[in-house]
Nucleic acid binder design. Structure first.
Length: 658
DNA sequence: GGTTAGGTTGGTCTA
DNA sequence: TTAGACCAACCTAAC
């Protein structure tokens, strides 16, 4: 046994199986091993995380902790209630740490944080061991290198680059024994309580039903036992989702499925799985486990691929990428590598060379000094703001769309094709609203929110990157009908419609009053009233879809013809407006106003942590301002917001130390 | 370099 | 019921 006193820092790897970083820690043959989790304020205050994803994370932490205890009754996950950057230097000294071990993370936020941590470890004479990245099949930086330094913008590029990087590493076994921690006293150090960043604010406040107290009881929590904070301590209401996290949950489910339903797993074709299926859903639902590292992507890949190979040898049918299960993991790697290459601008249109510029409504506000979005958006049209709120809250008057959005809010998960349907509807195939608005809503509500995949898929569906066939448009009626003619899914998530005849379930406004009466529902209004004299009300469609689709198609055709990308000089300085006709779709008023979201529309601004007042019509702009052409941010001085790049640790980067 | 085929997963009509 | 043609027309990679 060596003298190594090792701090193992869990981050995006909440598991014991197939963890090369954990294996690296154990290879040091530590005399003591402290498994820790730093309770980071970026996740607590500065990310968009609703109760469902919080619950999932807490589940994963609990599960890892009990697995550690199973290996060594003296061990468990030590949750320390302070961000790593300030905590770790103190901890190194207090516990006499000789080695810090953690897994490499290619997220922009994580890289900046880790750089700071590594520097402080060196100062303390602590040796740092960074384990290989295992969140993805291949290391994202290696993929980018193999792709000529360019982001992977298609699945063929990813596959070619992956081939060059080499075979996907086989999973490694979970440890069978573990050193316990040494002394865990904290008498010599005090907690540096994180503060809510000025100007950024407490993004998560809107989900809380009471005040947040996870930091108030000191570094080791209320019982001084390094407990995992609870939703109550976070001030969060209970989760509504039935999806529960944890490595053991997914490993047992996966082994059962792969054993009992081998054929299904080996012949899986994503486009043939129904977005309308629930209880059970038609896909594996591994995404949230992959996100928190409760399931290793490589373990999943090889588990499936072994079965596929076996069936190939037996000359049985198998599916192949991109539609197969492993194909889904390849897309995930594609988005991670694209994000790794592009960095912070990946999450926005502005200043992003790989994102097509389209003059969407409700554009993000931007800060021209940092080149980053600020976190707010500009209401260029009161009508579009209302459409956005109705989309978000699931009362557009299109039951297929509303059912999906309600399932998303309640369960924190929707099928991939359902994501396509609502994303297309919000952007190029319906509302012509910025994909960045939609991505933010998904970020809040998805239990499987993965910044790279979410951003990438929103760009895909809005035809701003990765995909461009905008004339392939999802119908909010026909697409759902194809999968679920009877509307069972709609009846589940829009229960006020459950007694409507099949004939009207996708278009309730076409139901005669007699049918509405018999079904016990009234189709009227804009969704602001839930009932009328005790009878449930479901809204009329918020627009005529066919008309709106044509408007969008024209807008897209024109925007593609203009052909700007997010890094074009005319986008950066706002003069793109000269290239779009005033009568065209989107916030185009000739030369008036800044770039998308720099002010000048005369509309109302929104910060992303403001809850749009549901059902309240925002004040209408009284004629758009023709006076101001100066960017708002130039006057106010923008604040730095680095969007959606920290997967576990928040969407915001600390302000530079002054 | 010009041409062509392919692109994760659309909608509608007809045979 | 299902398979194929057509819609209108994008980009990129491969030849």
């Amino acid at each position: 046994m060596s003298k190594a006193r090792v701090l193992y820092w869990f981050r995006t790897d909440l598991r014991l199986h197939d963890s090369p970083a954990l294996a690296a820690a154990l290879a040091l043959q530590p005399s003591v091993l402290y498994p820790i989790w730093c309770w980071d304020s970026h996740y607590v205050y500065h990310s968009r995380v609703g109760p469902n994803r919080w619950q999932f994370l807490l589940d994963c932490l609990e599960d890892v902790s009990s697995s550690l205890t199973t290996l060594n009754p003296a061990s468990k996950l030590l949750v320390l209630r302070e961000p790593a950057v300030t905590l770790l230097p103190k901890l190194f000294k207090e516990w006499g740490i000789t080695h810090l071990v953690f897994e490499k993370d290619t997220d922009s936020y994580a890289q900046a944080r880790d750089k700071e941590v590594v520097a402080s470890a060196r100062q303390c004479g602590v040796e740092v061991v960074v384990g290989p990245q295992s969140r993805t099949l291949w290391d994202s930086e290696d993929v980018v290198k193999a792709n000529g330094g360019k982001p992977t913008m298609s699945i063929t590029q990813l596959q070619a680059a992956g081939k060059k990087v080499g075979p996907i590493p086989r999973p490694i076994e979970a440890p069978t024994s573990l050193s316990g921690p040494g002394e865990t006293g904290l008498a010599g150090i005090s907690q540096t309580r994180p503060v809510v960043e000025e100007g950024v604010g407490d993004i998560n406040a809107k989900y809380r039903s009471s005040s947040e107290t996870s930091y108030t009881s000191g570094l080791a929590g209320p019982n001084n036992d390094f407990s995992i904070p609870t939703l109550e301590e976070l001030g969060m209401p209970p989760a509504t989702t039935t999806i529960r996290g944890g490595e053991s949950v997914i490993l047992s489910r996966l082994s059962r499925i792969l054993a009992d339903e081998e054929e299904w797993a080996a012949t899986f074709e994503k486009p043939k799985t129904s977005p309308a299926a629930f209880e059970p859903q038609s896909t594996f639902l591994t995404s949230p486990y992959l996100h928190f590292g409760a399931l290793s992507a490589r373990y999943f890949y090889h588990s499936v691929e072994d079965i596929v190979e076996k069936r190939r040898a037996e000359k049985k049918a198998v599916s192949t990428p991109p539609v197969s299960l492993t194909g889904q993991l390849l897309f995930r790697d594609m988005y991670f590598a694209a994000q790794s290459a592009i960095g912070y601008p990946f999450g926005q249109t502005y200043n992003n060379a790989h994102c097509r510029f389209i003059p969407w409504h409700l554009p993000s506000k931007v800060d021209t000094t940092t080149g980053l979005v600020t976190g707010g958006y500009e209401v260029d049209s009161a009508v579009k703001e209302q459409e956005f709120i109705r989309w978000r809250e699931g009362r557009t008057g299109f039951p297929w769309i509303d059912a999906i959005m309600r399932q998303l809010k309640y369960e924190g998960w929707i099928h991939h094709l359902a994501r396509h349907a609502v994303a297309c509807f919000l952007t190029r195939g319906g509302c012509y609203i910025s994909w960045e608005r939609g991505a933010e809503v998904f970020e809040e509500w998805l239990v499987d929110h993965e910044a790279a995949c979410n951003i990438g898929n929103w760009q895909w569906l809005s035809c701003t990157a990765f995909y461009s066939m905008f004339y392939r448009c999802y119908s909010p009626v026909a697409f759902g009908k194809k999968w679920d003619d009877n509307g069972t899914y709609i009846r589940k998530y829009c229960p006020e419609l459950r007694h409507l005849p099949k004939k009207y379930i996708y278009e309730p406004h076409k139901a005669p009053l007699k049918d509405q009466r018999e079904a016990g529902v009234m189709i009227k209004g804009d969704g602001t009233e839930a009932d009328f004299n005790g009878i449930p009300v479901y809204p009329k469609p918020m627009f005529d879809f066919a008309t709106q689709r044509d408007i969008c198609l024209e807008g897209m055709k024109n925007a593609f013809k203009v052909g700007l990308h997010g890094d074009h000089a005319k986008v950066l300085d706002g003069t793109w407006k000269e290239l779009f006709a005033d009568g065209g779709e989107g916030p185009t008023e000739g030369g008036v106003g800044g770039p998308g979201g720099m002010g000048g529309f005369g509309g109302e601004d929104r910060e992303d942590h403001e809850e749009p007042a549901a059902g309240v019509t925002p004040k209408r702009s009284s004629g758009r301002s023709k006076a101001s052409t100066a960017p708002e941010s130039a006057k106010k001085g923008g604040r730095k917001r680095e969007h959606s790049q920290g997967t576990l640790d928040g969407a915001f980067v600390k302000k530079a130390k002054s």
